[in-house]
Amino acid sequence: MSSTRRRALHAAVELVGGEGIRALTHGRVDAAAGLPPGSTSNHFRTRAALLAGVIEWIATEERSDAGLPSISTRDDLVRGLARMIEVQSGPQALRTRARYALFIEADVETSRPLLDQRATFEAWIRGILRQLGGPPAEQQTRFVMAMAEGLLLHRMTVDPEAPVEAVIARAVDAALAP
């Protein structure tokens, strides 16, 4: 990927995460990235193409950052989920805000990279719950996912310092309960 394209996509994520979806224009991206006017439109001819490019970029960046940890115990799962939520609501908060805004704005096909990534994460959680608690725990995958998503949204919108580990521990314990 060219450095111009990379700079444009990075700037686009920061614009959407910091100012909302309406900030996503070719000219604003050029300015934020310190690129000559027209540079972003050379890579993304339309706003729809820019939107799709940003979504793909976020999915790619999140996959490269994720490094899904190896989980073999309940405590590993609690710590792993807590760390992910803390990173997504802390150092990667702008990217998380951009992901939320883009999920709302984009149609299903355009948001496919994010939906596929979420499905991969859900399968990862499902496998861990099955390993730790068998089929009854596996059936709690959506509960654990909803808790994690809700906790992340709460930290992003209401209380950025809300404790996460104790809440996650209660949800994991409920999912693993016989």
Score class of each variant (00 low, 15 high):
residue 27 G to W: 04
residue 51 L to Q: 07
residue 75 D to M: 03
residue 143 F to Y: 02
residue 137 A to W: 06
residue 29 V to T: 03
residue 80 G to D: 01
residue 146 A to W: 01
residue 147 M to P: 00
residue 96 T to H: 05
residue 102 L to P: 03
residue 154 H to N: 06
residue 61 E to T: 15
residue 131 Q to Y: 14
residue 125 I to Q: 02
residue 128 I to L: 10
residue 37 P to L: 00
residue 36 P to D: 00
residue 74 R to H: 10
residue 149 E to D: 13
residue 119 A to F: 10
residue 159 D to F: 04
residue 105 E to P: 04
residue 27 G to Q: 07
residue 97 R to E: 08
residue 35 L to H: 00
residue 132 L to S: 15
residue 153 L to M: 14
residue 143 F to G: 06
residue 115 L to M: 14
residue 80 G to I: 00
residue 70 S to V: 07
residue 85 I to F: 00
residue 34 G to C: 01
residue 165 E to D: 13
residue 51 L to N: 04
residue 153 L to E: 14
residue 140 Q to W: 02
residue 83 R to G: 06
residue 117 Q to L: 15
residue 103 F to T: 09
residue 48 A to W: 07
residue 74 R to C: 05
residue 126 R to E: 14
residue 117 Q to V: 07
residue 83 R to E: 05
residue 129 L to C: 08
residue 63 R to D: 13
residue 89 S to G: 15
residue 36 P to K: 04
residue 101 A to G: 13
residue 75 D to H: 00
residue 56 E to Y: 08
residue 31 A to S: 07
residue 142 R to H: 11
residue 105 E to F: 09
residue 125 I to H: 00
residue 84 M to T: 03
residue 78 V to C: 00
residue 113 P to Q: 10
residue 142 R to K: 09
residue 94 L to M: 15
residue 138 E to Q: 12
residue 137 A to P: 07
residue 37 P to N: 00
residue 78 V to T: 05
residue 107 D to P: 12
residue 82 A to W: 04
residue 34 G to M: 02
residue 88 Q to V: 09
residue 42 N to I: 01
residue 60 T to E: 15
residue 24 L to V: 05
residue 41 S to R: 02
residue 62 E to F: 09
residue 82 A to I: 06
residue 107 D to T: 11
residue 165 E to A: 15
residue 124 W to L: 06
residue 96 T to D: 09
residue 107 D to A: 07
residue 29 V to Y: 01
residue 131 Q to S: 14
residue 109 E to A: 15
residue 56 E to Q: 13
residue 71 I to P: 01
residue 83 R to W: 09
residue 104 I to V: 13
residue 73 T to D: 03
residue 83 R to P: 03
residue 52 A to M: 03
residue 136 P to Q: 11
residue 66 A to S: 09
residue 155 R to H: 12
residue 85 I to K: 00
residue 62 E to G: 10
residue 148 A to F: 04
residue 69 P to F: 02
residue 53 G to P: 12
residue 67 G to I: 04
residue 132 L to G: 14
residue 133 G to W: 14
residue 89 S to A: 15
residue 129 L to E: 08
residue 107 D to I: 13
residue 68 L to E: 08
residue 153 L to A: 13
